[in-house]
């Protein structure tokens, strides 16, 4: 399912039993975690329908558990004492920001944060500081997590509008960041377009 708030952001969810939608990004390395695949799908829609990214965009990923599919393979490999190095190299949370940067060929800062509302708060503060210090010229927040049945990813542009919505939102602590971003999208009271 894909929902878009024009000028603000995109929310995507894909049942885990379904194939991950392919994006048109040209990536030489496609061995990413399925959650990264869903993130790229969300990012592609974001770039087409919300705001194009620039070569100096910062990608800040927010996640609770990260790339669980790859991590589970790594855990299995440790138990079996047989390395699965391709999954290991692509299992860390940062891949949720690095692959988007590679996909859009953007060279701004990229990193991942975990920590529910505290992480979101720090992400918005970081966005302010990174812009002021000219480390980037725009910032995209990417929240992604799997639950038992679904891969979910949301992408939001950090703008005056999203900051206003964030400040006005009552965001309960403890929720995965993707739920927090979706609450911001819902609070926009704009119609969600599919």
């Amino acid at each position: 399912m894909l929902e878009c708030v024009p000028g603000l952001g995109v929310a995507v969810s894909v049942p885990r039993v379904e194939p991950i939608p392919k994006s048109a990004f040209v990536l030489k390395d496609k061995r990413f975690d399925p959650l990264v695949g869903v993130t790229l799908h969300a990012l592609e829609t974001f770039a087409a329908r919300v705001a194009p990214t620039t070569p100096r965009t910062a990608h800040i990923a927010l996640t609770d558990r990260g790339c669980t599919a790859h991590l589970n393979r790594v855990f299995d490999s440790v138990r079996a004492q047989r390395p699965r190095q391709a999954f290991f190299a692509r299992a860390s949370n940062t891949m949720l920001a690095s692959y988007p940067a590679m996909a859009v060929q953007s060279h701004g800062p990229c990193f991942a944060l975990s920590g529910s509302t505290d992480a979101l708060r720090l992400a918005f503060a970081s966005a302010t500081a990174l812009t002021q210090t000219r480390n980037c010229d725009c910032i995209v927040l990417i929240a992604a997590d799997d639950d038992n049945t679904t891969h979910r990813a949301s992408v939001i542009a950090v703008t005056e509008r999203s900051r206003r919505l964030y400040k006005a939102s009552s965001l309960p602590d403890g929720l995965p960041p993707v739920d927090l971003l979706n609450l911001i999208l819902l609070d926009s009271k704009e119609p969600l377009l599919s």
Partner: peptide, 10 residues
């Protein structure tokens, strides 16, 4: 402080 991404390879 400064930060950047290569966007080159994993």
């Amino acid at each position: 402080y400064g930060a950047s991404a290569d966007a080159h390879d994993v």
